[in-house]
Each structure stands twice: as structure tokens, then as C-alpha cells.
Amino acid sequence: MQISFFKQRKPMKNARKQSHMRPSHHRKFCRLNDLKPGCCGRIRHHHSSGAIRRRLLDLGLVPETTVVVVCAAPLNDPLLLKLENDQIALRRREAALIEVETLFDDSVS
């Protein structure tokens, strides 16, 4: 199961299609920047590559990790995330490259 999150770009596209094709009542997927403050999501996969991907992974934004969106900055961007014991600031631009599974149904905007 774990491995499917690390598929190459092409297979990953298919994986995404599949997830859209079979909508589930219990599992909802969205981008990290769509989560409202206070909501919680589990990272599914990254849509970035290269330096950004590496940096996000380095900071612990690794698939299967649970992220809480604490709040947004006063001007609505960047986002303040909490994962495990760390607080991480991330621009919406980059948050939009992370696909998450929302852990509460009503949390998607």
C-alpha cells in the first residue's frame, strides 16, 4: 500500500484518476491548501518534484503523516501547519502541490 504513493509520475496520474473515479463516502481527498484552519489531513502524495519535493520531505511532510492546519497568516498566506511536534510555515502555492486525505468529512471547503 505504502509503495503506491511513491509511484512514478505516469502511474501516479492513473492513481489519481482512480481515486476520483471511485468516490468514497468515508475518504475525501483534496489539496492541503483547501483544508480550513483547525482541520486535519493525512498526506497522500506530492505533486511536486526536485528541490521542493525534497524540502517538503525533509521537513517531515512525508506520505502517511498527519498534518493539522493551525492557522493562516494575517494576510491569508502562508499556512501554519503542525505535524507531530513541529510547526511549519508553508505557502499556499506549495500546499496546493500536496494531496491529502481529509480526516473529518466536513472539513473540506
Binding site: 505504502q2 509503495i3 504513493f5 511513491f6 509511484k7 512514478q8 509520475r9 502511474p11 519535493r53 525534497r54 520531505l57 512525508v62 506520505p63
Partner: peptide, 19 residues
């Protein structure tokens, strides 16, 4: 190797360390 195992090796190595 990547096609054979259908995974991205660079991500896989990172995830191994992560695990």
C-alpha cells in the same frame, strides 16, 4: 528498476529512511 517495481526510486529511498 523503477518500471519493474513501479516506484520512484528517489522517493522510495526517502521513505525507507522515513520509516
Amino acid at each position: 528498476f523503477e518500471t519493474d517495481q513501479s516506484l520512484n526510486i528517489s522517493d522510495y529511498l526517502a521513505s525507507c529512511r522515513e520509516k
